[in-house]
Amino acid sequence: MQHRIIEFAIGLLFGIGLIVSGMTNPAKVIGFMDLAGAWNPSLAFVMGGAILVGVGAFAIARRRTTNFLGGAMHLPTARDIDRRLIGGSLLFGAGWGLAGFCPAPALVSFAAGNGKAVLFVITMLIGMAIFEFLERRWQA
């Protein structure tokens, strides 16, 4: 139960951070990606602020074998830069630029009841399900 409460609280903090940062506004996201138009550099400050804090935490995390609650550290082990990584990321970026929604802010706007975010989240879940289906067929 303690775990569930902490996870909820961190999710809440993350969601508030997304709203405060402006990431939940697709117009602002697209403004950042629109170098040829009226460029809005705000999102560089979001990433900068997040990484500033994160670098220290992950340096500590790398040296630990257990988390603060005594459980396992689930740090990524994949290191390869392959066609899947780049191809998938290119598809993701194209979708992100098209509507200005990436997964986390879309979920927040979905919970806020925004119609386009609701549709986006539904089709994103369908996309994720298509991936699962193709993966399973590939392995079978």
């Binding site: 961190i10 993350f14 402006g22 400050f45 994160g54 935490a57 603060f68």
Partner: peptide, 24 residues
């Protein structure tokens, strides 16, 4: 909005830091 974006970004960084350190 540099300041609110920076503040929001710091919150995102704190959340990501807590998630890896506390929950792994």
């Amino acid at each position: 909005t540099p300041w609110s974006s920076l503040a929001g970004g710091i919150l995102l960084g704190i959340a990501a830091s807590l998630f890896i350190l506390v929950n792994g």
